[in-house]
Nucleic acid binder design. Structure first.
Lengths: 399, 399
DNA sequence: CGGTTTTGTAAAGCATCCGACCAAATTGGT
DNA sequence: ACCAATTTGGTCGGATGCTTTACAAAACCG
């Protein structure tokens, strides 16, 4: 049963076209780089999000605590909290055990059970994965379907989402989708070679079919959001997602970067080094993907009769990743690079060699301040949880 | 003063929660990624900047025009404009020639003569350059001093700024400084090997000495601001500044990127390619700076007896720049790369070869949508004008 | 048991923007 | 000549949002 709760009127959250998406970037020459007017009600919305954000990251606390954390007065916090309780996003959790003089505090917290988020991960090579998540990123239910033929793709995705919405026993805050391909800021898939999509408005199709807010983004961009919100990644982080291809998601100053043509992160077919390399499916030689993708890595590992050679193959791939990322690290000063993919391939020598190569090829700010390289701890669910973060961020202003 | 807010007791009520709730607790030293409260007066400030920004980019217009451009009502615009006139930032420019029915409009515009900006460029290898600029970036007066010995650096800079402030025949909006080195967001120079500075608060020193607002940033970061504001660069642009060293400034989605340790743009000592290269002063081999800096380029050109070899040397350098930037272009999807430096070195074959190499080593979104590479048209004043943009942006919210 | 501290709410005040209305100035039709 | 239409710029009251001040409730402490 489609719920209309998530699209109620008075919420700030409802504005489908947020003012930050001004990038109607097609005009030749220059786009108007003007911001938008700000009204008192926008300030209200910002402060609403600020309360939610504080509760999200710091857990249950009293209104007085919220006042101290946010800088807003207790009066305003009371008002905001009352509004959020009425909207079902916040709930009173009982009285805190008195720990000193004064009236005992009433704890308030996000109503984690009050809403659910649907996340979809279309990046698998064999299956589409979907899940029902709580507001704190916990997975409540999960479904998988085999990737269908090209002409049934959309119907399959819609049905997967519809089944999950039906399975959610709470109002659905929104549906987040992480998909391969280049996706613009309105959820239109500009190009997705695997699916044969070009200029397809997946976000609009899902919204029309489901009647709930939908947000669609590239899978690696979703993944880096999960790593930021749930994985403790710093404000400047690059996530490299290794699967059938190689892609990346980038966060700078805590903001996701989309690129001028929404193609940020497309590093799979960047040529690495000046000494040739494996043949790539794209026709070029020495693409990062030819060195690092799971198919290319496994085929080279299988071809090596001697298991002792495996170490060398993984180190070579790690070195190539380091060579490719060194200019990015130098130009952006990211402090952490997170790898997502099969841990048995990426987790060991490969990651070690990557960080060694990076330090050799960049001028580290100081000895122990070099860039870190590590595997994600989000495992296989990283895109699902990233899709949930997209909804949290888009609907509640929380990340 | 009471302050027991630090640690509350554990809450007694603890609904079963997924293990991921506290996305924050670990990672020592990590900054809270919470925003700040927003009050109505902040909205007012934003709208003030919006009016200034509109006038800055579109020139004189009537209050009614401003209302249509910004979406604010004529009432609010009249109020904002009155305030800006009282502050001396806006002036009435007379009545517009009637072009239709209705009462003739009174044009208002930025009062370009009402304030001046002081810009300093400390990036020259021989001289410090300073200038008095109008609000629209025009240079009114200029001074140069030889770079002094290390122990007189600060005094020299202060005196240069003081002389320019005295020379400005209008209130000084602020002083902007572009300097080599790594500069944090409060104008503290973390490292500047050329000057022997480490952790030196140049911004504070100048502010104390001059009593006007001061903003200090890296020279290449200042330069890219000039290119964005005065050079028509798009929202996602990388500027490469070639001089004694090689540095870069980066703008993504119209926002300057500083990096996690304020070291974004430090690409001079990134190793390029996997086939060696010239020896760099830093001790490594094949740094971008060893290929591309003005001293290294000129010495290689002078060493070539045959002028016909010059073309090859420049093409090699351009190719190396392309090799270094290809991963950056892939990861960020910048749409334009701007070169700043001696045009006789960078402007011809070098830039051509750079764009060719970039296109060969990245997967262009489509045929004619590849990245552009061009020389700046801001010439030698790019850092001065960028420093002025820093002041415009910091003091008026205009860029 | 009164004094102190803390929490949460209520009332009044200030800032900001908007809608409705109005006066002024110009064009254009009759 | 004159009046209607149009556009500009302003005034006045109303709505929203945050703050300061004040207050009741509920705990602790001596």
């Amino acid at each position: 049963m489609p719920n209309t709760e998530a699209r109620r009127g008075p919420s700030i959250i409802d504005a489908p076209q947020s003012p930050t998406t001004n990038a109607r970037a097609f005009a030749p020459g220059r786009t108007l780089r003007q911001g938008a007017k700000v009204l008192p009600e926008h300030a209200r919305g910002h402060n609403r999000s600020l309360v939610l954000q504080t509760l999200f990251h710091q857990g249950a606390m009293s209104r007085a605590d919220l006042s101290r954390e946010t800088g807003l007065t207790r009066v305003t916090i009371s008002d905001l909290v009352a509004e959020l309780i009425a909207d079902g996003f916040v709930a009173e959790m009982g009285v805190r055990e008195a720990s000193g003089p004064g009236k005992p505090a009433i704890l308030v917290d996000l109503d984690h059970a009050g809403h659910r988020i649907i996340g979809l991960d279309l990046s698998g090579s064999d299956t589409f994965i979907g899940a029902v998540l709580t507001l704190d990123g916990g997975i409540v239910a999960r479904r998988e379907v085999a990737v269908p033929a090209a002409d049934a793709l959309v119907d399959t995705v819609v049905e997967l989402a519809r089944a999950l919405v039906a399975e959610s026993h709470a109002p659905v805050l929104g549906v987040g989708v992480g998909t391969p391909g280049v996706v613009d800021d309105r959820g239109v898939i500009l190009t997705a070679p695997n699916f044969g999509w070009a200029g397809f408005d997946l976000e609009g199709a899902l919204r029309n079919a489901l009647g709930v807010p939908v947000l669609v983004a590239n899978d690696a961009n979703a993944a880096v959001l999960a790593e930021y919100t749930f994985g403790g990644a710093p404000d400047d982080v690059l996530l490299v997602k290794v699967g059938r291809g190689v892609g990346s998601g980038l966060l700078l100053a805590g903001q996701p970067m989309r690129g001028s043509r929404f193609a940020a992160g497309e590093i799979g077919h960047v040529t690495v080094g000046t000494d040739g390399g494996p043949q790539c499916a794209c026709g070029k030689v020495g693409c990062l993907e030819a060195w690092l993708s799971v198919p290319s890595l496994t085929s080279r590992l299988n071809a090596a009769a001697d298991p002792a050679a495996h170490e060398g193959i993984l180190r070579d791939a790690g070195e190539r990743l380091g060579i490719a990322l060194a200019p990015v690290v130098g130009a952006l000063d990211v402090s952490e690079i997170v790898l997502s993919g099969p841990p048995e391939l990426l987790g060991g020598s490969l990651a070690e060699q990557t960080v060694e190569t990076l330090r050799a090829r960049t001028l580290a700010p100081s000895v122990d301040e070099g860039v870190r390289v590590r595997m994600t701890e989000q495992g296989q669910d990283i895109v699902l949880r990233g899709a949930a973060v997209m909804v949290l961020s888009g609907q509640l202003g929380v990340s």
